[in-house]
Amino acid sequence: MNAIKSVLAAGLLSIGTLAFAQTPADLSLLGDSAPVTAATRTIVLTPSTTFVNVTGGETIKFIVGEKSFAWNFDGPVSSFDLKRVAPANMLEQTLKVYVAPNPTYFP
């Protein structure tokens, strides 16, 4: 009986994990990857950085140690963990991005 419960629990956990898997469509709601040369602003991230503020429509170059990447914040989401879009293993900590509305769309 315990073996059946263990198998069922493992199956339910697997289904739950699949429900939260990121798809490219999910990431597109956060913006788009961009070449670092397209960035209009640079933010240096350190291990003590816990959040950054950006504005919708901005393309930001993030520097982490000797590595860098850029992100264009053109999605509708107002905040998210930057680790979701950073290259693998670039960020060790959770780092919240707060995205202000794009002023182009508000008079």
Rank of each mutant, 00 (worst) to 15 (best):
G75E: 07
S78W: 05
T46F: 11
F20A: 08
I15E: 09
L12G: 00
T94E: 07
I60G: 04
K67I: 04
S28P: 05
A88D: 13
A25F: 06
F80P: 05
Q22N: 14
A100K: 13
P103E: 08
T49Y: 02
T37D: 09
K83C: 08
V7C: 15
M1I: 00
G31A: 03
V52L: 00
L8H: 08
V77I: 11
K61I: 02
K61N: 12
S33I: 06
N89W: 02
I15S: 05
T50S: 12
F106Q: 11
T17Q: 15
L18S: 14
I4V: 08
M1E: 01
D74W: 00
A10V: 11
L29T: 06
E92D: 13
F106S: 12
V64D: 05
D81T: 04
F106T: 13
P24A: 03
T46C: 02
T37F: 04
S6E: 15
S68L: 12
S33W: 06
A9P: 00
A25Q: 14
S79F: 14
T17I: 14
V77E: 07
V85M: 03
L45Y: 01
L27N: 11
P76H: 09
D26N: 13
F106L: 15
A38Y: 13
T55I: 15
A39I: 04
S48H: 10
A34L: 08
G56P: 10
T59R: 09
A38P: 12
L45R: 04
V7R: 15
I63Q: 09
A38H: 12
S14H: 10
D26H: 06
T55P: 09
F80V: 01
G56E: 07
F51I: 00
S48L: 05
I15R: 06
K67D: 15
L82A: 01
T104H: 15
I43N: 05
D26A: 07
V99I: 14
A39P: 01
K67M: 11
T23D: 06
W71K: 03
